[in-house]
Design a binder for these strands. Structure first.
Length: 483
DNA sequence: TGAAATGTTGGGGCG
DNA sequence: ACGCCCCAACATTTC
């Protein structure tokens, strides 16, 4: 068989440019079968949340078009990856399988597949396509893994040698006769009801959308990013997270483009540095996850598993999920999430603090809600973010750091524009009262058409009370951990 | 990548 | 002029 093909297996790397595994497969000179496997059967693979399934649907359609435009075909298969890949190798007589590595729970699947391919005499070649530094590449001076971001970030910068971008394939040789599922049959797009209208309005998924977002960010938003990124009312963030989640852009592409803008004098060094450090936080999350695969489920500092977490009443949990807590900044954030599949990072911290501290419910349950509703739901970043805020993580906020939703609102949404955008029933309130309407004079509420308990809820819990409850509850476990 | 409680300081009102 | 008090403003400590 002179013309045995190779397989390139797409996973969290849905792009043609700067895709090391794909470039290597193409460079082999053999025909390349490109495949994406929708794996909702493997025990290790966490089922994708609804918002991510929506995004994946759009991304695969666009990726398929891009591949077709280059003469290839994206094969879609569903099932346990181990069986699907074995089957595809058998069908095509492929002599090698290429992919970019994963670092979370799914890496067990990849290890099994690699071993199985080897026994079949099929080459398995894996690459780094999604991290600046792979978790096993960086070690502390003592030879251990990092537990604090700043030293991690320093080590990363010191060791990073930016590789040249992997070339985008000019053409893909077709392999005919390989069956593919129809994307629509996977049912990734929601029906009955189709709740995705707000997402379609907010996002342009896909590799080309990703590149445009990066370009626009570096053109319009990078200057002042270091401060603006904290302002939900000013749209100062990059909004690259879902693209990074699905690998529609690589962190290397972000790095090169940002440095290029800096060197061209188009972007202040300080803002570029801040942006790149945020990209590095994603690396750090994977570093932590790799060294503690249980991180999405269990508190990194295990003693916090013993906290007497509340179950939370149905009413409390539902108020939080749907943005009816009575705290405007929280409700605005939760509604932005529900509508667009995304929430501003500053607001994520505020709503997470409210969940894990004020409601005192295990952070895992909040993480699960984010997992289902975020288009950028990432097993490492999501878990790390929640554990950071809950105070249970590695380089986490100390347990006694409790966000006050009123002060946070006043500080980061000073005019109340973010609240007005997502909680329109409060939009007539003056800035002075918009973050704590329950304390507004009756005349002000009447003037703004707000009836507490009717048009907008009263606070679901008193923050001052809840803060003290959280401090008492956390305190014991935190001391046990220190001993 | 907090907030609240507590402590300190210094100007001004006042007897 | 002086001591005293008040309290805002800022600093430090504590959770």
């Amino acid at each position: 068989m002179p013309d045995r093909p190779v397989i390139f297996w797409f996973r969290d790397d849905l792009r043609l440019a700067d895709n090391p595994g794909l470039a290597a497969a193409v460079a082999s000179g053999k025909p390349v079968v490109t495949v994406f496997v929708f794996d909702d059967e493997s025990r290790e693979a966490r089922p994708m949340g609804a918002a991510c399934r929506w995004w994946l649907d759009k991304s695969l359609a666009l990726l398929g078009e891009r591949i077709a435009a280059k003469g290839g075909k994206l094969i879609l298969r569903r099932g346990a990856a181990e069986a699907v890949i074995a089957q595809l190798v058998k069908e095509t007589g492929a002599e090698a399988v290429f992919w970019n590595r994963r670092y979370g729970a799914a890496r067990k699947i990849d290890e099994r597949i690699k071993a199985a391919l080897k026994t079949e005499g099929v080459a398995a070649e894996s690459f780094n396509g999604s991290l600046l530094a792979e978790p096993f590449a960086l070690k502390t001076g003592a030879g251990g893994d990092f537990k604090v971001f700043t030293p991690f970030w320093k080590a990363l910068q010191a060791s990073l040698v930016m590789p040249a971008a992997a070339p985008e394939p000019r053409a893909l040789k077709t392999v005919t006769g390989v069956a593919s599922d129809k994307l629509v049959d996977w049912g990734l797009h929601p029906t009955r009801p189709d709740w995705s209208g707000g997402m379609a309005e907010a996002w342009t998924p896909g590799e080309m959308g990703a590149r445009k977002r990066l370009r626009d960010f570096l053109k319009d938003q990078i200057a002042g990013y270091a401060e603006n990124r904290d302002r939900p009312d000013e749209d100062g963030t990059s909004r690259l997270s879902p693209y990074l989640r699905f690998g529609e852009i690589s962190p290397h592409q972000c790095w090169r483009a940002a440095r290029h803008a800096e060197e061209a004098g188009e972007a202040p060094a300080r803002d570029v540095q801040k942006f790149l450090s945020e990209i590095a936080w994603r690396d750090f999350s994977y570093h932590l996850l790799y060294h503690d695969p249980q991180m999405p489920k269990l508190s990194w500092r295990r003693q916090f598993e013993e906290i007497e977490w509340r179950k939370g009443t149905k009413a409390e949990l539902e108020a939080w999920r749907r943005g009816r807590t009575g705290y405007p900044i929280i409700d605005a954030g939760m509604r932005q999430l529900w509508t667009t599949g995304w929430m501003h990072n500053r607001v994520r911290m505020i709503v997470a603090s409210f969940f894990a501290k004020d409601l005192l419910v295990h952070w895992r349950r909040g993480e699960e809600w984010f997992w289902d509703t975020l288009v950028d739901a990432d097993e490492a970043n999501n878990a790390n973010g929640w554990q950071w805020t809950a105070g249970t993580g590695a380089d986490a906020a100390p347990y006694f750091r409790v966000f006050n939703p009123v002060l946070q609102g006043e500080k980061f949404d000073p005019n109340g524009d973010y609240v007005r955008a997502w909680a329109p029933e409060l939009s007539a309130l003056p800035a002075k009262w918009i973050h704590h309407p329950w304390e507004a004079p009756a005349a002000v509420l009447a003037e703004a058409g707000v009836k507490l308990g009717e048009t907008y809820p009263a606070p679901v819990v008193d923050h001052d009370f809840a803060r003290k409850r959280a401090l008492e509850t956390y305190k014991i476990k935190s001391q046990e951990g220190a001993a």
